[in-house]
Design a protein around this nucleic acid. Sequence first.
DNA 1: TTTGCTGCAAATAGTTTGCAGAGAC
DNA 2: GTCTCTGCAAACTATTTGCAGCAAA
Lengths: 155, 155
Amino acid sequence: MTHTKKRYQAIIGKLKAGHHKITPQRMAIAEILADSKGHPSVENVYEQLQSDYPNMSLATVYRNVMLMKSLGEVLELGFPDGSNRYDGNKPYPHPHIICVRCRKIMEPDLSTLEDMTKEVIRKTDFTVLTHQLTVFGVCRDCKKEKPAGNHKDKP
Amino acid sequence: MTHTKKRYQAIIGKLKAGHHKITPQRMAIAEILADSKGHPSVENVYEQLQSDYPNMSLATVYRNVMLMKSLGEVLELGFPDGSNRYDGNKPYPHPHIICVRCRKIMEPDLSTLEDMTKEVIRKTDFTVLTHQLTVFGVCRDCKKEKPAGNHKDKP
DNA sequence: TTTGCTGCAAATAGTTTGCAGAGAC
DNA sequence: GTCTCTGCAAACTATTTGCAGCAAA
């Protein structure tokens, strides 16, 4: 079974466990979020559903994304630019590296994150619950196309 | 001169350098942002100005916070919960550790951040421009008041 | 059958914009 | 005097909610 398929099963399982009804709308939304390629926004999930479910209401998408988020099966990525995107494929905190030119998102495993958490705990005496790390930059492909620093306004 | 005072001068200086007019409204907004204790939202800045500038428009606050942000003199803190807050006191990226109980915000210097940036560069080949790191947890004071794990729903 | 879910439309919150007069330079 | 800035109100975007009918369990 693929990871995406497992994620779909996990979401549906949590819904059942919480005595939530398994409606066709929920299955469709879960299917998209279980994949989450491209980190869709609510609007984006809604658009993807338009062809198969022309009557699907945007409110229904909002309600169910929130429900799955509250069940811990979908991660909300509140990016600094204000856009809310969702990830049901890796529903635990993880770093996002975003290219400001092509908007590509990478999600590397960072071994230094653990050291950083330890340093936070040592310096603040907090009990750490969750975190969000987003790094902005220019990806390799975009650097090739137009090297950084060549774009200037008239002097 | 205090750091806050220096920050105020820096903001006003950037405005002048950009040939923006120095209006009483701008001075008042700059003064609040230069301090930025409590990381105010736009609404919050507006409220702080109500007593001294009862005619100040919320739109004016929005316009000027955005202007100062575009000049690099104010940092926008797009927290994952969706609230936009601003910092004109430390207008460069820095970590925020937020207590989910009392909403207190700490801003420790993290030496591990540099290692993390290096790891990001090594693993993604990005040119890193900026970043945002927010950690959520429970602060020391709140842990004392009510130890974590004691709050449960009925089984 | 029962209870929760959906679609619709209206409400709400946060932010942006057009415009005419006011004010900084 | 010129040109930007401000206040006001309306517009806009993203999200939430009330309600009546519908459908999963």
